[in-house]
């Protein structure tokens, strides 16, 4: 379980997130929704320890990670797929995936079991430079890299953004499979309401860096989405 208690987050002097309280249960997909610039990506970065500073408490399975560095959080079981994927372009596909193994210091340096099943294209192109893959393939690679960290919880920042429609479906299926097969907790920042409705067990709407509404997946309706997402 991941708990955020009175979390505030800052970029330098800018106060971005205000008093965030959330509880995300083990094995659930939790959608973070809201208009552009309300702090969704910052929420994931705060959990990952990538903002300048934070106050409040961050607990993963009751371990207090609030003052831990980014690499310690990764080793504690937080996997991260950032917006824009941020794979290393001149690393091979294999090197990109195995980067994630640094988080599992006692584990073997090998590609995670589920990757061949979920991403056969990657397995057929292990020696290809990551920078030469298409956007969708790079997204698969970013997810495979996060899986290699052996996470308890996976942070996905707009995984279907800027990807051609047929690949979007594959990515969506992959996220649901990961949740079901590995009982993986997933925090999903998503603009695609259709997918959020289909996949999530719970949701939160953010506005101006504050929580304005939380609920269960079944309660996420088009009316709510229209109310909180239209500009």
């Amino acid at each position: 379980m991941l708990q955020l208690e009175s979390v505030n987050s800052f970029y330098g002097g800018s106060h971005i997130l205000h008093d965030i309280n959330l509880e995300i249960e083990k094995g659930k997909i939790f959608a973070v929704l809201g208009r552009n610039g309300v702090g969704k990506s910052t929420l994931l970065k705060t959990i990952m320890g990538l903002t300048s500073s934070m106050t409040g408490k961050l607990l993963l399975n009751e371990d207090d990670l609030s003052t831990k560095t980014t690499f310690s959080r990764a080793r504690a079981g937080i996997g991260y797929v950032p917006q824009g994927r941020e794979i290393i372009p001149d690393f091979s596909v294999k090197e990109n995936i195995l980067m994630g193994r640094f988080a599992d210091i006692n584990g073997k340096v090998e590609i995670p079991e589920l990757v061949p099943e979920l991403f056969p294209y990657l397995m057929d192109n292990l020696n290809r430079a990551g920078g030469l893959l298409s956007g969708g393939q790079q997204q698969q690679l970013a997810i495979a890299r996060a899986l290699a960290t052996n996470p308890d919880i996976l942070l996905l920042d707009e995984p279907t953004e800027g990807i051609q429609p047929n690949i979007v479906e594959q990515i969506e299926e992959c996220i649901i499979t990961l949740n079901q097969k590995l009982n993986l907790t997933i925090i999903l920042v998503e603009q695609n309401i259709r997918f959020a409705k289909r996949a999530s067990h719970g949701f939160v709407f953010l506005d101006n860096g504050r929580v304005v509404l939380t609920g269960k997946g079944a309660e996420l309706t088009d009316e709510l989405a229209n109310k909180h997402l239209t500009i």
Partner: peptide
């Protein structure tokens, strides 16, 4: 290449 992502990978 990417310090933040390196840290996020442990």
């Amino acid at each position: 290449r990417n310090k933040e992502m390196a840290a996020a990978c442990g």
